[in-house]
Write a protein that binds this DNA or RNA. Structure first.
Lengths: 235, 235
DNA sequence: ACCTGAACACCGTTCAAGT
DNA sequence: ACCTGAACACCGTTCAAGT
């Protein structure tokens, strides 16, 4: 009867369940609150029990990052490269927004998981099949990923829920400093003031830069570029 | 005479010296090896001595990040906005390369230091004075920073000293996996193979994407854009 | 095959005390 | 004003033991 306590026993521990719980816990309480101990508690289990399913915390984090990559939708649906890449970028940003800890983890993870490899393979495939020469595809791919990751990083650094709140915090933060900050950083003050009035839409901002980049990438295709649905020339 | 030991006493502890030592230690041994204890050891002092000069480890890290921003050269030298922004971007990347731990820290630092504020103020100033309307300047600024940070993040994630080494490691890593990875990720394999042959120049890659972005940003200026050295119209 | 208990080395940080 | 010593709560992880 000691078995039937207030908290019912969870089905069983396994790698997938551990990873899923870790992701959920990081989403809810932040990555710094995710420890082997708090995670174990989530299962009503002693910390050491986790080590049967993940080798160590590093591999746990690796697995978590790969779950984020697995959430990215890279079905092109027969669309042209530009709409496909655009959709993929928005999907990647969505995944990074749902799991704000992920971008901070990518910095130190060097062992890409299967979903990560698949994501990158599909991206390259999309570009190559659209007729981009190899080097151009690499350029396009590097630029796109840099922009997506960097935007997520900035968004997290600034990181406020509502745009109004962002402006307020920034304003009070600036206002507090020693000698008139308005004189020291007039252009920053303009940003704070203007964005405070108008509000700031990260999603819209993301798309502006994204379209800028996609238009630029289009220039990297060879001459027959504007003729859609035509196959690359066979030599 | 107990004062005159093998290790001569360092001049004195102060905030600047503590921060500089922390940066140097992180550069040499990596950010994860930088603890209050190892840093104190650098001065031949007990860990608690540091707390008279930095409030806690979080403020230490904040200060380190601001040192990196302070290394960025944003003197425009009377050049047009494009060359000025280009130069600034290369300088920022240089700073992030010299201090590879910095990009990983930016993720969690929310209190920008004076050098950080100055950097952003100067960037905005450069764009506004070049005639970019407010919203366009914000777009340009957001896109540029995203690209720079994201590129640094990727470079660190892949992070190998030499390009040859990068290709080798990637190849063996892929080769080791269970069923023929060549079939699962053919486009990734092409990247590994091609870049292994030709070598991979991060600096050149960075500039390709940067110029793509700068050309795109140019489109955000109003009609009189191509007429250099002309002042924005007064209404 | 899976989970537990006790222990170890290592963190950041506190507090009261020394000079 | 600056540094020290001892201690606390908290990490990831080990090892040997339980079932």
């Amino acid at each position: 009867m000691a078995e039937q306590l207030a908290t019912p026993r969870r089905p069983r521990l396994n790698r997938d369940r551990v990873l899923a719980a870790a992701v959920a816990l990081a989403d809810d309480t932040g990555i710094e609150a995710l420890t082997m101990r708090t995670l174990a508690q989530e299962f009503g289990v002693v910390p050491m029990a986790l080590y049967k399913h993940v080798a160590n915390k590093d591999q746990l984090l690796d697995g978590m990052v790969d779950i984020v990559f697995a959430e990215v939708d890279f079905t092109s649906g027969g669309a042209d490269w530009k709409t496909a890449m655009r959709k993929r970028a928005l999907s990647m940003r969505g995944a990074l927004m749902r799991h704000r800890w992920a971008i901070g983890l990518m910095e130190s993870r060097m062992r890409p998981g299967p979903a990560n490899l698949r994501y990158h393979n599909e991206t390259m495939k999309c570009l190559r099949e659209a007729g981009f020469p190899f080097q151009s595809a690499v350029h396009a791919y590097s630029a796109m990923d840099s922009y997506i990751y960097g935007f997520a990083l900035q968004e997290k650094t600034i990181g406020f829920a509502t745009p109004q709140e962002a402006a307020e915090v920034a304003e009070t933060r600036l206002a507090m400093q020693p000698p008139s900050l308005a004189e020291q950083y007039p252009y920053l003050l303009e940003v704070v003031a203007e964005l405070g009035k108008a509000g700031y839409d990260y999603a819209a901002e993301f798309e502006v830069g994204l379209d800028l980049l996609l238009d630029g990438i289009e220039q990297l295709r060879p001459e027959w570029k504007s003729q859609a649905h035509r196959r690359p020339p066979r030599t």
